[in-house]
Design a protein around this nucleic acid. Structure first.
Length: 193
DNA sequence: CGGCTTTGACCGGCGC
DNA sequence: GCGCCGGTCAAAGCCG
């Protein structure tokens, strides 16, 4: 599947996506999308589309150990399906965000602490899919990480849910951002994690 | 020793 | 009802 030509995906390149801390990873092809990525086409079904998908702050670290990190800010709000459907479908997994990055490493340190709880080989993908849970108490955010089946240079990361706590590296993160007086950094959005 | 990873088993949804 | 498939559980092992 060629995701890049899918209209339901928002595609990021480094032209509109600044990564001042880019070190080990090549984020030249970053994108994210909502709803599921499991289907072949990923077209958004109007009836089951998730109401909102937000990534408030992401901190990618090229190598664990802090040698280098790329900080990313993505925010998306899609408010279609505004209450027209029955509200009982608004369970906990209301927010799902996925994006694809070109990265040498499988799992990127985004500032949160993840605990691996599963690994599966899925159809249409020779690579294994890894399942992670936020290890913070009371936070049930999940994350799936898999290599792109067609281009193993890309990693597809899917987040389910929204963190109800701040990132452990949040303080450090904010300091970094504030030191960057750049228009593209929406600092206020960082605070609504 | 505590937290994490690994990995097979188990479960539920869905299509036929 | 059955089988497939994706997601989760949990025991065992590993590691700092």
């Amino acid at each position: 599947m060629d995701i890049s030509q899918n209209p339901s995906f928002t595609y990021f390149s480094d032209e509109n996506f600044i990564n001042p801390f880019m070190d080990n990873n090549d984020f030249s092809n970053l994108m994210f999308f909502d709803v599921d990525e499991g289907g072949n086409n990923g077209l958004i079904d109007n009836e089951i589309s998730s109401p909102t998908s937000i990534i408030s702050s992401e901190t990618f670290t090229g190598e664990s150990g802090g040698s280098g990190s790329a900080t990313t800010l993505i925010k998306k709000e899609s408010t279609r399906n505004t209450g027209s459907k029955d509200s009982d479908q608004t369970k906990e997994m209301g927010h799902r965000v996925a994006f694809r990055t070109r990265s040498k490493i499988d799992v990127m340190d985004d500032g949160f602490k993840w605990r691996k709880y599963g690994k599966k080989s899925v159809k249409n993908n020779i690579n294994k899919r890894n399942y992670y849970k936020c290890s913070s108490e009371g936070c049930s955010v999940k994350k799936r990480v898999e290599r792109d089946s067609e281009d193993a240079a890309y990693v597809i990361t899917t987040y389910d849910g929204v963190h109800n706590h701040e990132s452990p590296s949040h303080v450090y993160y904010n300091e970094m951002v504030l030191s960057y007086d750049h228009d593209n950094w929406n600092q206020h959005s960082l605070l609504q994690c």
